[in-house]
Design a protein around this nucleic acid. Structure first.
Lengths: 138, 138
DNA sequence: GTACATGCAAAGGGTTTGCAAACGG
DNA sequence: CCGTTTGCAAACCCTTTGCATGTAC
């Protein structure tokens, strides 16, 4: 499996100390962090990293399809490394994000667009939900 | 059918000149305008309307479930009067928004959330697409 | 009359940018 | 080396807010 670093090298991106650290933070994060979180985590490794650099690096990665941006309702932009297609369920109690796949819906949306005279380029499917109360627990 | 004005009255909202104008603009708009557009259209009717009032009125309506906010990728927030459930296809060439319904998908998402141990509160389904090239035209 | 709504301008959040200095290939 | 990247602070955009004034009920 190709790592983020590998992808950067393949693209010929200059690997500065800061970028290496940001790559590490992103690779180690599975919680769809926002820029501020990435910055905080990066600063723990090396405190000389400015937030502007984080913004610039994240945008660079996004433009090169290494990162995907999500703008969930009520949150600032959050990021994850590009992987297979999936959608998100946002736990509106905790802000945690769960992933799921639904290829049937994927196919349906392509069809819907087609029927409307469009070619689907991208689509967003996000569920906002609360945990079911667990009746078995006392 | 109940108009926006009717709903305002029912809620006991004070009907100022500005609000009446904003209601008129919203009722006359089917293009999911953003705040700036609403303001521009309102100012054409009465130039004394400040954008802060538009922001405040729109938020008031949103909080009272008269308006629905959409944050489409790449646009500032856009609004429409609350109606039956439907989803949006955004023409990324023109910025135009088309609506569609898909009750099957609605049901499926509720089920998906349930299987993940959640109760669905809300969901977002947005298609980003481009018009199909029309081969019949020369 | 009184509580609420308004316009203005200032402040706010999140993000971007200009610049001189630092650095990677 | 030389063009790119960085940190900093200022600028930016969209939105919210404090305040004195105006207005609906």
């Amino acid at each position: 499996m190709e790592t983020l670093i590998d992808k950067c090298k393949k693209l010929g991106l200059k690997l500065t100390e800061q970028r290496k650290i940001i790559v590490k933070v992103l690779s180690d994060s599975s919680d769809h962090p926002d820029v501020e979180s990435v910055h905080k985590r990066a600063v723990k490794i090396d405190k000389r990293i400015g937030i502007a650099t984080v913004y610039r690096t994240i945008k660079l990665f996004e433009d090169n399809n290494l990162l995907e941006k999500h703008e969930f309702k009520g949150y600032s932009s959050r990021y994850e490394t590009v992987r297979e297609n999936h959608h998100h369920l946002i736990d509106i109690k905790s802000g945690k994000v769960k992933e799921f796949r639904n290829t049937l819906v994927d196919a349906m949306q392509k069809q819907v667009a087609k029927e409307m005279g469009y070619t689907l380029v991208d689509y967003r499917l996000e569920l906002y939900a609360v945990p079911v109360k667990n009746r078995s627990k006392k």
